[in-house]
Amino acid sequence: MGEVIVITSGKGGVGKTTATANLGIGLALLGKKVVLIDTDIGLRNLDVIVGLENRIVYDLVDVVEGNCRMKQALIRDKRYESLYLLPAAQTKDKTAVSPDQMQRLCKELAQDFDFVLIDCPAGIEQGFRNAIAGADSAIVVTTPEVAAVRDADRIIGLLEAEGKSRPRLIVNRIRPQMVKAGDMMAADDVKDILGVELLGVVPEDEYIVIATNRGEPVVATPTSAAGRAFRDIVRRMAGEDVPIMPLDADDGGFFGKLRRMFNAKEG
């Protein structure tokens, strides 16, 4: 039996879908068999982030309604052998699927896959209820901002009420220079306020924009700082003991830059 994990945040725009795509591809690169499920019915995006938008024939609602078999709806990513996507329907709404149906669907997929990652829509309404219904555990994504952390706290409360205990936290879009200057909350500040386990810290990275434009998530890009952070996170998810590296605002001057240039080439 594989692990079913929901990636959620409460607030929109904090990087849930980007995180789901990167974690999925990262795990696939480690040799895990992974399926990504987009549960944002009516506003699907995960297909675009992963770069599979042109290959959709059937979707989540088709599977649930029995219009097709599960195998027909799963899109296999040709770039990463063991990665599959189950896209959301674009023309229906959240009521097209029920929490019970999601539970059954997740159970079925967990038979065949090592990881079932569910991309949750923003908000706390039915889309959220559907997304968490079949999950064994949750990853909460937030950014170091008051509104995002506040919503994350609400989500953690709701997850715990639903028996999804001990959610793990990803703090996204950290700017080390601003943290150092005292103008941004540090990942540890956010972790302490929310009182949950920190799974990883992802720095703000312009490369995310480029990767999203291309439909090729950063986790596979050796030189991307965010990509490196996601690679560490998937190793933790796979059970490896990888310490959370402090994101250093200080680049180590000329020699530090030079050293990293060589490291990047080696890596």
């Binding site: 008051v146 506040r150 706290d153 943290v179 103008d183 941004m184 909350m185 306020i193």
Partner: peptide
């Protein structure tokens, strides 16, 4: 005061009421 500390303080107060 550093805006990081202001953010933390505002969050703590907001969360008390939310929770």
């Amino acid at each position: 005061t550093r805006s990081r500390d202001i953010a933390m303080e505002r969050l703590r107060l907001a969360l008390v009421h939310d929770r």
